[in-house]
């Protein structure tokens, strides 16, 4: 589903060239990208998601040369193939919870599917919050809603950026279980990017980023 080849990135002309290990993850598989602050894991996540263009190297997503697509094509592929869970949940504030999910489907080029949205939110314990405004949700509810939004269009790859950093152990397990469960349901690949060492024991396949050794 995802393969990166020799990814390097330089923030400014005179800045250091950051080099990243190659990643490969198939549908239905999971991978932990572990690294402390400053190891460039967010940069790598943004390169994988096509939010930054690599200085060198390439990203293949769903068998397409993702990093060399035109900007518009990349937007389309991102919308269809990726579901991203951010550390802090953000939504379109003017919309209700279910409308935010409908928007994600719409931007992925899919028809609205109220039954799927309802089933998904109900499964995450948010069945009573379908028509609630997102700012009326608790932080925990917002995080679950953001997971629902990331998977509502059945993406090929779920990217989770620091999904458990602010959570205690039991909630960490709960969130990880949710991500795994929904990835399994749709056969999606799951890439978790975090500095949270607790996940080391919970996810078998991992790539660890070390501070600075890869800077060319």
């Amino acid at each position: 589903m995802l393969q990166t080849h020799g990814l390097k990135y330089r923030y400014a002309d005179s800045g250091p060239l950051m080099a990243f290990p190659d990643l490969a993850i198939d549908r239905g598989k999971e991978l932990l990208l572990l690294g402390a602050s400053g190891t460039g894991k967010t940069t790598l996540l943004h390169l994988v998601a096509g939010m930054r263009t690599p200085t060198e190297g390439a990203v293949e997503l769903a068998d397409a040369p993702f990093s060399t697509l035109t900007a518009t094509e990349r937007d389309r592929v991102r919308g269809r193939e990726l579901g991203i869970v951010f550390q802090t949940a953000h939504f379109v504030r003017s919309l209700t919870v279910s409308e935010n999910l409908a928007l994600a489907r719409s931007l992925a080029g899919l028809a609205p599917d109220p039954d799927r949205i309802q089933a998904l939110l109900t499964g995450l314990g948010l069945g009573h919050k379908l028509q609630a405004r997102v700012d009326a949700l608790s932080v925990g509810e917002q995080q679950r809603a953001s997971i629902a939004r990331a998977v509502v269009h059945s993406p090929g790859l779920i990217l989770a950026d620091e999904p458990t950093s602010a959570l205690d152990d039991s909630n960490t397990d709960a969130v990880l279980d949710l991500l795994r469960q929904h990835a399994a349901e749709t056969g999606a690949a799951l890439l978790v990017v975090t500095h949270d060492q607790r996940l080391k024991d919970r996810m078998a396949d991992r790539v660890e980023l070390t501070p600075h050794p890869s800077i060319a």
Binding site: D75, R76, G79
Partner: peptide
């Protein structure tokens, strides 16, 4: 942030 979020969900700059 909301607009950037929509871009991650597949919205194009033109949209």
């Amino acid at each position: 942030y909301e607009l950037a979020l929509m871009r991650t969900m597949g919205a194009t700059p033109r949209q």
